[in-house]
Amino acid sequence: MKQIVELTINGDPQSLAVEGHRSLLDTLREEAGLTGTKKGCDVGDCGACTVIVDGQPVNACLMLAVEAQGRNVETVEGMQQSIDILHPLQDAFMRHGASQCGFCTPGILMMARKLIEENPDPSDDEIRFGLSGNICRCTGYTKIFDAVRSAAAEIRAVRAQEETV
């Protein structure tokens, strides 16, 4: 039996008719047409499905859509500041070669965004710890760490500039 779930996705209020057993991941991908969030395992092991719910990164595969009732869900599709301005992390991922096949990328971007928001100047160990639930099998992580460091520095610089203005 389907029930109506009302939630906010990337700032837009949505109401979706879903069955009680459907995961948030399948609902985003199959019902809401937001296929940027990926399914690499469906059991919490890979982090490809990481989305941010009410400010906290979670595995969308381990949450039911009905549990998102009344909540605020953010996915990779909402990361850009505007149609033609990428988030500094997205830009850094491109420049540093942090995305090869790209399958892990949306999940890692969401996780990294949260990491930098909480900790604008993360150490290498903090970056590694923050991304330990996200598997990337292509890059060996080195370029991902480079990109996160570089985006964090850029965001700090912009912020410092804003404060002096």
Binding site: T35, V76, F93, M94, S99, G102, T105
Partner: peptide
Amino acid sequence: VIEKVTGE
């Protein structure tokens, strides 16, 4: 890679 980082 643009498409990969935007989820498109």
